[in-house]
Structure formats: C-alpha cells, structure tokens
Amino acid sequence: MLMGLYNYWIVVVLMMVGFYIVIAHGNLIKKIVGLSIFQTSVFIFYISMAKVEGGTAPILAEGIRQYSNPLPHVLILTAIVVGIATTALGLALAVRIKEAYGSIEEEDIQKKDNLDC
C-alpha cells in the first residue's frame, strides 16, 4: 500500500505547500507564485494517474501494446493554458495595484483602504 500510493502523497504535500503560500503570505507576487505551484501540483496529480506500468507515450507506433492514458494529458494541456492565463492577469493586477497604492503588501493596502473610508 505504501508503495502504491506514495506518488499521490508527494503530490498532496506539494499542493499544500502552494496552498499555504497563497493564503499565508501577504505579498501579492508571492501569492501568485504560490497559486502557480498549487496548480502545477494538481497537474502532476492528473498526469500521475494516467501512467500505466510499462506503458509508453501515447503516440501510436508499431510493436507497442501498452500506452499511457492520453485523456488526462489533454485535460492538463488545457489546464496549463488556463493557469498561465490566470498568472498573467494576476500579475497585471499586481502591477496596477503597485501603481495605485505604492505597495504590494496586503497589509499596507488594507491600511490605505481603511483610511479612505
């Protein structure tokens, strides 16, 4: 059992590292880095389940019987694109926030907002 699932456990640890960075850190850029680590770990989860022992890459060729599952690969290709789209937009927002508030620290921004009210 230990050997059969260790891969998923590593993925869980990675996911949680990313997730922790997102919610615990106050720096906007770092949050986005965390988010992308979180997402990449989910990709690893999908790709790991596609692997078949003794299989090869899903490109049809003579003399190969066992292929890994292509479907998760397709899903993750899409998800990677979604991930970079989110990262780009998040960074653009961070840049604008820096211009508007002069800071990219959550606390400073919150403080300035409270002053506005």
Binding site: P72, A79, T86, L89, G90, D113
Partner: peptide, 30 residues
C-alpha cells in the same frame, strides 16, 4: 483604485475555488 484590490482578491479566491473543483473532478474521473 479599490476596484483593483477587490479584483485581485476575487482572482485569488476564484482560482482557489476553481482549483478545488479541478481536484474534485480529477478524483471523480480517477
């Protein structure tokens, strides 16, 4: 300018939400 900050917070929360859904879908698929 608070619109930017609101949007950023929404982006973080929304992406976490979407990623959770993605994990859930992955497990169902598995």
């Amino acid at each position: 300018r608070r619109a930017l900050w609101a949007s950023y917070q929404y982006l973080i929360m929304g992406t976490i939400g979407a990623t959770f859904i993605l994990i859930g879908i992955g497990m169902m698929y598995q």
